[in-house]
Amino acid sequence: MSVDSTIEQSYWKKNKLKIAPWLFLAPGLLMFLLYVIAPIFQSIWVSFYEWDGLSPKKFIGLANYQELIDDRDFYRSLKNNVIWLVLYMLAVPIGLFIALFLNQNVWGIRIYKSLFFFPFVISQVVVGLVFAWFYDPSNGILALIFSIWGGRPPAILADEDYVTYGIIAAGLWPQIAYCMILFLTGLNNVSPDQVEAGRLDGAKGWRMLWHVILPQLRPATFIAVVVTIIGALRSFDLVSIMTQGGPYGSSRVLAYYMYETALSEYGYRMGYGAAIAVVLFLIMMVYISFFLWRMYRQEKSGG
C-alpha cells in the first residue's frame, strides 16, 4: 500500500506539468464529447435506420440517402439554403459601412451605436414575429404603404416566389448589426500611424479604405464572414416562426426540413431526418474545416 502510494506520488510529481492542463481541460472536453461529438456519430448511425422514435429500429442501409436523391422537397430546401448563403453575405458589407459611418466622435454616438446594435440583442423569435406583422397583407405596415399608392400588397409570406426573400430580409436585420459590432471593434484597433502615413501619401476616401483600413480589418472581416455563413446555414428559427416552411414547403431550408421530418407533428421519421442532418453537416464541414485550417495556419505563423 505504502509502496504504491510513493510510486503514485512520484509519478504525479514527475508528470505534473503534463497532466495538469488535461485535468483542467477534462470537464470541457467531456461535455464537448458528450454533447457535440457523440451526437454527430449517433446521427450518422441513425441515418441508416428507419425509426419513428417509438417502435424498434429497422436497418435499411443507404435507403434514406437514396430517397433524398429523389426528393423534390430536399432540393427545394437546398436551393433555399444557397439563396440564404448568397444574400446573407450582404450583411458583411452593409455592416462594414454602418460601422464606418458610426466610427466617429460626435456627441451621443454611443446611443446611436447601441440603437444600431439593438436588433442583435432581441431574440430571433421577436424579429420573426415583428417582420411577419410587417408583411401581414391585411393590417401590416407594408400593406399600408402599398395602399397609399393605391396598390394591393403582395402577401409576401404566402407567395412561393417572395417568401424566402422576405424571411432573409428579416434575418439580415440582426445579422447586419452583428457584423457592424465586429467591424466597430476592429476599427478601434486600426493603427492611427498608418492612417496618418496614408494621408501624407495623399490617400483619401475609397483608396484609404481599400488600401489602408480594410487590410487592417482582415481578422474582423474573416470572423464576420464565417459567422454569417454559419448563421445562414442554421437559419431555422425565422423559418419556423414566420412560415413553418410554407406555403406548401416553399420556404423550407435544410435545417427546418430536418426538424420537420424528424420531430414535427407530422414527422417522426428519425432516420430520414438524420440523413438530412448528415448532409447539412457535410456542407457546414466545408466551412468549418476551412475556418480551422486558417486558424491553425495563423497560429503557426504567429500572426
Binding site: 404566402a158 412561393e160 410554407g246 406555403p247 406548401y248 414527422g267
Partner: peptide, 17 residues
C-alpha cells in the same frame, strides 16, 4: 397516416393557390 397527411395537405394548399 401522418406523412401522407402532411404531403396531402401541402398539395391541397398549393392547388388552392
Amino acid at each position: 397516416p401522418a406523412e401522407m397527411a402532411k404531403a396531402g395537405m401541402e398539395g391541397f394548399q398549393e392547388f388552392m393557390i
